[in-house]
Design a binder for these strands. Structure first.
Length: 317
DNA sequence: CTCGATCCCTGGACGC
DNA sequence: TGCGTCCAGGGATCGA
């Protein structure tokens, strides 16, 4: 699932391939995940993609003011505008040759001035696309919390301590930190030896500082490895990330803890599967692991495949 | 404020 | 093998 490192990877790819390109036209497939499909058709053609930025799990395509060539298009307002793209669970945004067959579940085609198309694909359509202009951009972004890579020690502790939820729920809450999802929440909690069901109030400042530090280390490492690619699916030409090889908790139910050898267990916290080492990460009394599935039990349990969605980082050529 | 439940959606895993 | 069921999960939303 695209979290901060995966979105960063996609955004960096797009910086190389579509930045500076002009959008010539827009075609749409299914649009139930798009805020205002008509706005895309009305406002994107004629604009140039000036920048591709990441904001939490969103990508922001900064768009030019649109008077690039030829006739003035009166339907295009001159104010700052952005295309916000959230990949949800299975979304991808990539540049393809216009004559290249499109993947199944492609829902947006943006023809560019270099003969290529910027295409959005998303089988489950849990993603989101929104065209935002003017003050709507700032209004949209103010809902989100700190960037976990930039947040300082004081702010991190303050944001966590301001709430009394379980730590996993807080890590996943985009209004606390923007960009952390299920994988990197579990990975950082394992590394910090904190059980996901612990409440923020029960954690010491030292534990929170440790959590912040390992979270940043993990995110940086994951970005350097182009994110995590879980269980490849369909279509050949992706360039998968490598960070899944470094997972220490996520998807490892039934395997031995890399640190102590205990069996990694799974439980549900904040409505999400949460993987942890019962020996390293002391559980609150009210939190029990789920029974191990048959595939993950037994002596030589050939570890179950990670229970997870799957997606692939497509190469942005 | 915080929780859990429900829904959205598709396809892969699994059980019989 | 084939079919039905369960499940993954980010986020919105609603009720407790």
């Amino acid at each position: 699932m695209p979290e901060l490192p995966e979105v960063e990877t996609v955004a960096r790819g797009l910086q190389k391939t579509v930045m500076g390109r002009k959008i010539l036209s827009v075609a749409l497939g299914k649009t139930d995940f798009i805020d205002d499909p008509g706005a895309l058709e009305r406002h994107l053609p004629g604009r140039r993609i000036d920048a591709v930025e990441r904001y939490g799990k969103f990508m922001m395509l900064r768009l030019s003011a649109a008077e690039i060539s030829g006739a003035v298009n009166s339907t295009v307002e001159p104010e700052a505008a952005s295309l916000l793209v959230h990949l949800g669970m299975t979304g991808n945004l990539a540049s393809r040759r216009a004559d290249e067959a499109h993947e199944k579940h492609t829902h947006v085609w943006m023809a560019l001035d270099d003969g290529r198309e910027l295409r959005y694909t998303d089988p489950r359509r849990f993603g989101r696309i929104a065209y935002l202009a003017g003050e709507a951009i700032a209004r949209e972004l103010q809902r989100f919390g700190a960037d976990p890579l930039l947040v300082g020690e004081e702010e991190f502790v303050a944001r966590i301590k301001a709430r009394r939820s379980r730590i996993k729920a807080l890590l996943l809450d985009q209004s606390v930190l923007r960009g952390v999802g299920n994988i990197y929440a579990d990975e950082s909690l394992w590394r910090a030896k904190i059980h996901p069901a612990r409440t923020s109030a029960s954690l010491t400042p030292a534990q929170l500082l440790k959590l912040r530090r390992v979270l940043q280390e993990i995110l940086r490492k994951a970005i350097s490895l182009r994110g995590s690619t879980i269980a490849d699916f369909q279509d050949g030409q992706g360039e998968p990330g490598e960070y899944q090889k470094h997972h220490r908790a996520y998807g490892r139910e039934g395997h031995k803890c890399y640190r102590c050898g205990a069996i990694v267990r799974r439980t549900i916290v904040a409505g999400r599967s949460s993987y942890y080492c019962p020996a390293c990460q002391h559980a609150p009394r009210d939190c029990r692991p789920l029974p191990l599935p048959r595939a993950a039990r037994g002596v030589k349990a050939k570890a179950s495949k990670p229970r997870t969605g799957r997606w692939k980082i497509a190469r942005n050529r």
